[in-house]
Structure formats: structure tokens, C-alpha cells
């Protein structure tokens, strides 16, 4: 089979899988315990990574912004510029990419491993709906965790920016945060944060699909893990372009 055909076939399988996820997400009963467990794994366990990255990204952005704005004598614009950069795009996208790396690979490898060692069959044989038990819980946990992690990313990014700025110019905390939020509107804040739910859905479904349907032993597990990261990152970057355009369409003022 040609590779383009294979890609299309994979994409078709992916779409059917996503449809199944959407349909079953709202079907009862809910695997609540497992959902909490996955939220713990995906959300809580990712927060140190997100906070540290946020601080670093915010600090670096602030230093670069300062270098540029200084030339125009507009240092007081730094918090505003940084808030726009972080809240509108950098925060959501960087958080999603980090999570796709950490969680996507994890899900791909875990489900792939369960598939090739017959653990998924074992679940089924024990009268458990493995799709609901394994896939739905992970996708939902991603959808729930990503906006929350994005908020964490935004705030740690702003905090990182503040640390970098206050070290250079001694800008005060209250001025910094007041200036950062004063130019933001709700449309700059809510839609970009909520759009990461879509990112979460993409990360969850792509990596669950690859892991859940893994074949070929240990090698297949490795492939599922790698492809989960590659494909989910790629999809979410592409979808981001569409979402940004869409948000702009819904809230023309948000541009």
C-alpha cells in the first residue's frame, strides 16, 4: 500500500476513534475513580514541569521584550506586551506541547504495553469496557487538565517575567500585574484558555488511538509512544492556526 493511502487510512481510523470517544464520553456509567487517577497523573504530576517552564519562558520573553521596547523608551509597556504574548498564545501552546511530550508519550506507551501484553483483553474478559475504562478517562483527564495547566502556565509565565523585570528595573509587583491585566479583555483571556480543551482532546485521542491499537510487541509500543508525541504535537499546532482564526472570527476585537 502506498504511504499516502496508509496515511489516509490511518486518518480515517483516527476520525472513527475520535467519534467513538465523543459518543462514549457522555455515556454512563462514568469511570470516576479512574478519571480522578488520570487527572492526578496528567494534571498534578505535570504541574512542576509547567511551572518551571512557565517561569523560564516568561523570564526569557520578558528579557527579549525589554531589549526591543527599550529602544522606543517604552519599558512601561513590558508587562502589557508580555501579558499579551503569554496569555494569548505562548501559554496555551507551550503548555499543550509540553503535555503532548510528557503525557502523550506516556499514554502511547502505557496503552501500547497493555495491548501487547493482553492486559486490555484481560480487562474485557473481566467484563470491563476497556474503551471507557482506559481511553475515555484519559481523554477527559487531558481535556480537563489542559486548560488548568494553561492557567498555571500563564501565571508562572507572568511571574517569571516579573522576576526578570524586577531584577533589572525594580518594577513593583502591583504595578506589574495591574499593567499586565489592564489592557487584556475577556476575549484575550477566556477563549485562548478554553481552546486548550481542544488541544487536550487531540493529545488524548491521538495517543490513546495509537496505544490502544498498537501491534508488534515491544517495538510497537515504542513506535506508539514516539508517534503519539509527533502526531499530537503536529495536529495541535495545525488546529491552533484554525482555532486562532476562529476565535478572531467570533471576537473580532480580540485581534
Amino acid at each position: 500500500m502506498k504511504s499516502s493511502e496508509a496515511a489516509l487510512e490511518w486518518f480515517g481510523g483516527m476520525s472513527i476513534f475520535s467519534g467513538q470517544v465523543l459518543r462514549q464520553s457522555f455515556a454512563r456509567p462514568v469511570e470516576l475513580t479512574e478519571l480522578l487517577k488520570q487527572t492526578f497523573e496528567i494534571g498534578w504530576r505535570s504541574s512542576p514541569l509547567i511551572i518551571l517552564s512557565g517561569l523560564a519562558v516568561g523570564g526569557v520573553l520578558s528579557i527579549h521584550t525589554r531589549a526591543t521596547l527599550e529602544r522606543f523608551g517604552a519599558e512601561s509597556m513590558i508587562p502589557t506586551a508580555l501579558a499579551f504574548a503569554v496569555v494569548k498564545e505562548t501559554g496555551p501552546l507551550v503548555a499543550a506541547l509540553l503535555i503532548s511530550g510528557r503525557v502523550g508519550a506516556g499514554i502511547g506507551a502505557e496503552l501500547g504495553g497493555m495491548r501487547v501484553t493482553e492486559q486490555i483483553d484481560a480487562l474485557e474478559s473481566l467484563a470491563v469496557d476497556s474503551f471507557k475504562y482506559l481511553v475515555i478517562t484519559r481523554v477527559l483527564a487531558c481535556v480537563v487538565a489542559l486548560p488548568l495547566l494553561t492557567v498555571l502556565m500563564n501565571f508562572s509565565g507572568l511571574a517569571g517575567g516579573f522576576l526578570a523585570e524586577t531584577m533589572i528595573s525594580g518594577m513593583s509587583f502591583s504595578f506589574y500585574f495591574h499593567a499586565a491585566f489592564s489592557s487584556l479583555g475577556f476575549s484575550d483571556y477566556i477563549p485562548p484558555t478554553l481552546k486548550t480543551m481542544v488541544f487536550g482532546f487531540i493529545i488524548g485521542t491521538v495517543s490513546c488511538h495509537l496505544g490502544y491499537n498498537a501491534t508488534g510487541g515491544a517495538e510497537g509500543v515504542g513506535r506508539a509512544a514516539t508517534q503519539s508525541v509527533v502526531l499530537s504535537s503536529m495536529f495541535l499546532i495545525i488546529v491552533n492556526v484554525i482555532l486562532v482564526k476562529f476565535i478572531f472570527f467570533l471576537y473580532p476585537g480580540a485581534g
Partner: peptide, 15 residues
């Protein structure tokens, strides 16, 4: 399935 038991070749214990 509740009335069946399945012992897999690799045992398939949940890791």
C-alpha cells in the same frame, strides 16, 4: 463474561 474466567498466556496482570 462475569461467568467466565480467562487465564492469558502471559497472565496479563495489570502492571
Amino acid at each position: 463474561r462475569r461467568h467466565m474466567g480467562f487465564l492469558f498466556q502471559s497472565a496479563a496482570l495489570f502492571d
